[in-house]
Amino acid sequence: MGLRKKIKGVTREMSFLDHLEELRWHLIRSTIAVTVLGGIAFLAKDFIFDVLLFGPKKADFPTYKLLCRAAQSLGLEDSFCFTELPFRIQSRTMAGQFSAHIWTSITAGFVVAFPYVIWEFWRFVSPGLHDNERSTSRGFIIIASLLFFTGVLFGYYVVTPLSINFLGSYQVSEQVFNDFDLSSYISLVRASVLASGLIFELPIIIYFLTKIGVVTPQMLRKYRKFALVIVLIISAIITPPDIASQIIVAIPVLILYEVSIFISKGVIRRQNKKAKKQHVK
């Protein structure tokens, strides 16, 4: 079914070119929002870099303090108790710092503008939904934004410090010093934060895949074991190679998978009720 748009009180079907034109303006408005907020982030250079980006490099980062106290209380290895991480960050190209400033500002603009970007996406797809579908999905923007920001915080306070602590202190030989390039450090933080934010959108993705009939609760339950293996593999890739770190990262994703099964079941239940009502009529 094509998208419908109300123009001057008249609802009409939109052609393929109309769809493209509509999508183009949604993308333009989203890009403008990201650019404006990115410009604000550009001006807040000291906070973005010294406080946020280089925060996980400092020994007084909240995650390190928490893990240090936990390790000491349990009598485990105190690898998170340190005064300084043994590496430096450097820029080896003329435009390295300026380029990092630009792209970091754009990334920050996207993160902050995410609710608006999602709103524009929703405005694009909502005309193709029925009135009852739109009414039951009013909380989509809020839920999607909360999940994304929760994932971003998880990536920043869990995945990033675990990765930085391990990779920053790892040495194959005492003769090799860790002097990381600025772009490499920023890429690690950016990937950890954005990947976590997008992974936490799993329930939203499952909701829409169930709506269009691609996914069912039975399918999700059937492949639960395979999902567990995939989650553990992803956790092993983005975290240090120790069991504790992998479990810390894997648990929230597994919880999201179980929540997704519940959401998929709810969607199927509503679809079945709707089908029964139509059959009665």
Rank of each mutant, 00 (worst) to 15 (best):
K222H: 14
R29T: 14
A59V: 06
V111R: 09
L146H: 09
I199M: 04
F110E: 00
S196G: 08
F148H: 05
K222F: 11
E133D: 02
R24T: 03
K45A: 01
I48M: 14
R190Q: 02
R269Y: 12
I247P: 06
F140K: 11
D181Q: 15
S196H: 10
S235Y: 08
A41M: 07
L182I: 15
I204C: 06
D18Y: 01
L228R: 13
A236H: 00
V34W: 00
Q171P: 01
A44T: 11
I255N: 01
G109F: 00
I143A: 11
L67Q: 03
I199T: 04
D78R: 15
V176P: 13
I237Y: 02
F114M: 14
T160A: 15
E22Q: 10
T31D: 03
T216N: 05
K225Y: 10
F180G: 03
R4P: 00
A41E: 01
F114K: 05
R12C: 00
F177Q: 11
A41C: 05
E258G: 06
I142E: 12
A250H: 10
S169V: 01
G155E: 09
P62G: 03
I7M: 00
T63M: 06
T63G: 09
F208G: 10
M94W: 15
W122R: 08
S173K: 04
A195F: 04
E133Q: 02
K274R: 07
I248S: 06
R69L: 05
I7T: 00
I118S: 06
T11Y: 00
R269C: 06
T11A: 02
V34G: 01
R270C: 07
W119L: 13
V215F: 09
K211S: 10
Y170T: 03
E258T: 14
K265M: 01
I263V: 15
I230D: 07
R190N: 01
H130A: 01
A195H: 04
F140T: 14
A95T: 15
T83N: 05
L162R: 11
M94D: 09
V125H: 06
N272Y: 01
P252L: 06
I142S: 15
S169Q: 07
G213W: 03
F114P: 02
A100F: 01
G213H: 03
K5F: 02
P86Y: 13
G75R: 10
V267L: 09
Q218Y: 13
A44N: 08
V249F: 12
T35F: 06
I89Y: 02
I206E: 10
V112I: 12
A275P: 03
T107Y: 03
A236T: 04
L43A: 08
C81M: 12
S91M: 04
K277S: 03
S79K: 03
Y170L: 02
S126F: 08
S169D: 05
R4V: 03
S135N: 11
F154Y: 05
D181C: 12
